[in-house]
């Protein structure tokens, strides 16, 4: 974890979260599936947390594979 906190990837559905999880696993990029933090949304769903330092690599890995709704800092 960096001083800036975490980045969070938001998706429309749980299925997309898990597709993204597979992509990040294959790309060997550190991440964790967590419940969506309350400060972002009241959605009862899940999202993916990762180190902001990896942001470019995460975005690149997911491009064209899974549609990301939003990337937030928490």
């Amino acid at each position: 974890m960096t001083a800036a906190g975490w980045c969070v990837l938001l998706f429309d559905s749980v299925s997309q979260v898990l597709l993204a999880e597979k992509v990040l696993k294959q790309a060997a990029l550190g991440h964790k599936v967590i419940p969506v933090p309350r400060q972002i949304s009241s959605d009862c769903g899940v999202c993916i947390r990762f180190d902001p330092a990896e942001r470019d690599r995460v975005v690149e890995a997911l491009a064209g594979k899974v549609e990301v709704r939003e990337i937030c800092f928490v």
């Binding site: 299925s15 599936v33 899940v46």
Partner: peptide, 21 residues
């Protein structure tokens, strides 16, 4: 319950469904 709660078992259930899909 798959993907409803965000805990380990809920996510694992959702993974099983995605794999079947």
């Amino acid at each position: 319950n798959p993907g409803r709660s965000g805990h380990t078992l809920s996510i694992e259930a959702a993974r099983i469904i995605l794999a079947a899909r």
